[in-house]
Amino acid sequence: MFLRRGRGRLDATRETLAGWLFVAPVVLILGLFLLLPILMALWVSLTDWNGQGSPFQSGVPYVGTRNYTRLFTEDGLVREDFMTSVRNNIYYVAIVVPAQTVLALGLAVIVNSRMLKGRTFFRAAFFFPSVTSSVAISVVFLFMFANSGVVSQLLAVFGIDGPQWFSDSRGTLHLLLGGLGLVDPDNPPAALTGGGPFGLSWWEWLSGPSVAMWTIIMLVVWTTSGTFMLMFLAALQDIPVTLEEAAMLDGAGRRQRFRHVTLPLLRPTMFLVLTLGLISTWQVFDQIYVMSQGDPAKTTLTPAYLSYRMAFKNFDYGPGTAISFVLFAIIVVLTVVQRLIMRRRV
């Protein structure tokens, strides 16, 4: 009895030691390259560091929360750029998230249908763009949307004179409002251009995504739908066949079965896809870097790209870092809100 207890204690010590040895490399890497950098960046966001030497030496000017107030309350180029980037990203999120979710769900439902053959092939075809390099794919889309390129020639087949995608900064909501005859885009009403929140006029807030932004929207919907389709597909395959059969016996038509049986069961996956979509669309960067660098006329500028550009091109590390923390806050808030809704409804 005594012996066994002694050995047990020895084992416990050895297991603790082994446990920490096993996790040590991961803890070290994540601590050094994730936790520590965040703390360092918090400091830098409170300074005016210009990239020279170390941000922790004594000569670096401490500015308190000024880098944050410059983003929100001080009139100037920094706020104008930041708010423009926020506007662009809001429109981008508002289109990409619903579009990719609906497309992914639609494809999953059709691929899952038992009557169709070649399921593996179609699943692979839809998923393939998701696994390729974002940079390589952006090169392909640059080629396709080039002036008199693939898309322009394809539109010409249908008699449509397509835009010069990457140099067209016109806001599509402006174009739509103009097309409906509500306002004249070249001469917007003074009530809208006069003022507005955060240094942008109401007219600027109401631009909608620019024509150039649409190319990036299409690219991203095209590359991410496949991944989300797989998630829906996995969830659909978990729905017991007997449930659908029971609904069928009760006389439910296909559309009714989808609305009242399938969709409610897909709700957890739906929320997951929406959350992941919201998180990733606020982080769009690679495609902007390769395809537009924020141009034309700053209409593809996003907070992620702006923060990179401020730090690494303008050497304004303070405001650049402040933008990344605001972005962090936006993403955390969205995640928490999603979680709360999910907990209540599922």
Binding site: L35, W282, S324, L327
Partner: peptide, 20 residues
């Protein structure tokens, strides 16, 4: 918690630590 940290937020921070 680490899983929830968005990657783009770490651009400048990672540079800072590598530089340091």
């Amino acid at each position: 918690a680490v899983l929830a940290v968005p990657g783009v937020v770490l651009f400048i921070p990672k540079f800072l630590v590598l530089n340091q």
